[in-house]
Design a binder for these strands. Structure first.
Lengths: 203, 203
DNA sequence: GGGTGAGATATACAGCGTGTCTATACAGAT
DNA sequence: ATCTGTATAGACACGCTGTATATCTCACCC
């Protein structure tokens, strides 16, 4: 167990968030320099803090990166997701789901890409994997509701439709779609159109 | 400039491919240990070669990884791609295109995933990026042929359709689709179905 | 006011990995 | 016999991680 982070708004010396400053510095550095040149020392320097403080707060480089992952997710307004499930019309829910995620991916594509890739390289990023599992589950729910509400278009398996939507709404797909200079909104529109075709509802 | 690789079939001492042995060792190690524990020393040891030889042959760790990338592509039977373009029926071409890539991704998913992620993290993997550009270009050609041959389904922009297919046929999508335990052939079938819906031909 | 405890820091160190340099050994080609 | 390209050995500078130890400084509590 690591030294535990105490109450964030602790009546502390000069600042009120050494951790936050370190995370911001880490994020900037990750984006700017890539993970190759990402080191505890540099993060510390950038945060105006000693190297030992970073170790004290986060333990290891990996734990710092994992924390950074969470930190970025928190900035991404992913908290709007619950709204999606109160939508009475599941097709609207699907559309809104796509909007929320596209906004999320768009908050910080450079950071996101590095963090996710890092997770794939190193096997870290448990937070991201967790979120992906969640995303899949959500799609499953939505698709099932759509099928209850509207008909089932012949031979299509639920699992297959969910898998396709899962791939379509991934960050990686977002990035590929955004490559041509498309804005987040444009990507979302494209995804929504494709999603409609994949679920195959004859409106 | 690095020491240049001489003719591969050089009438050499004992082996006839120190490079090849090193690349195989590198591949095994990358898959087995991840890039975290991927070091020149370990590769050398595994290849039964001295550390200096690796440096001599590849220069730097990055150059070794870049070479490894090419090496893996060469094993993936990506050379069957030209066949795709002699297909008279562009819809068949699209299907075959998907088959070839799914086979390619399936040759070595573990290695592929690490290599691609590494490219994203470090900015390396020029070979992979090159291949992606090529993939996009190929899809563009196929889509245009489809539109010539069959009609154009209303408002759909060529660029949008191409982008969607590009995302759909990416390695990352392959991986997401394969997650449920689907075989390469099953993933290919799924991709083909989705691709048909995306191009929107009313057969 | 003295004690306590958590946060932050300084210094030092072991260990590992990269990349460079120099020197050497050896095989085939001229 | 010499030259060239390949493989290797040993040593080294440098940078990064992670740990250990000791110190400093507050806020807070009695």
């Amino acid at each position: 167990m690591r030294p535990r982070q105490t109450q964030p708004d602790r009546a502390n010396p000069a600042d009120a968030g050494t951790r936050a400053r370190i995370l911001e510095a880490a994020r900037d550095l990750a984006i700017e320099a890539g993970f190759r040149r990402f080191s505890i020392g540099k993060v510390a320097e950038r945060a105006g803090v000693s190297r030992m403080t970073v170790y004290y707060q986060f333990g290891t480089r990996d734990e710092l990166l994992e924390a950074l992952f969470d930190h970025m997710a928190a900035r991404g307004r992913l908290d709007r997701l619950p709204d999606v499930f109160v939508q009475p019309e599941p097709l609207d829910a699907l559309a809104q789901f796509i909007d929320v995620f596209c906004d999320f991916w768009a908050t910080d594509p450079a950071g996101m890409r590095r963090m996710r890739a890092w997770a794939r390289v190193e096997g870290g990023g448990e937070a991201a994997r967790e979120r992906d599992r969640w995303r899949r589950q959500a799609l499953d729910t939505i698709v099932k509701r759509i099928r209850e509400r509207h008909g089932v278009p012949a031979e299509e398996e639920v699992d297959d439709v969910v898998a396709l939507l899962y791939a379509l709404t991934s960050f990686e797909s977002y990035e590929y779609l955004a490559e041509g200079g498309r804005s987040a909104a444009e990507v979302a529109a494209l995804m929504k159109r494709a999603a409609r075709e994949i679920v195959g509802v004859r409106d």
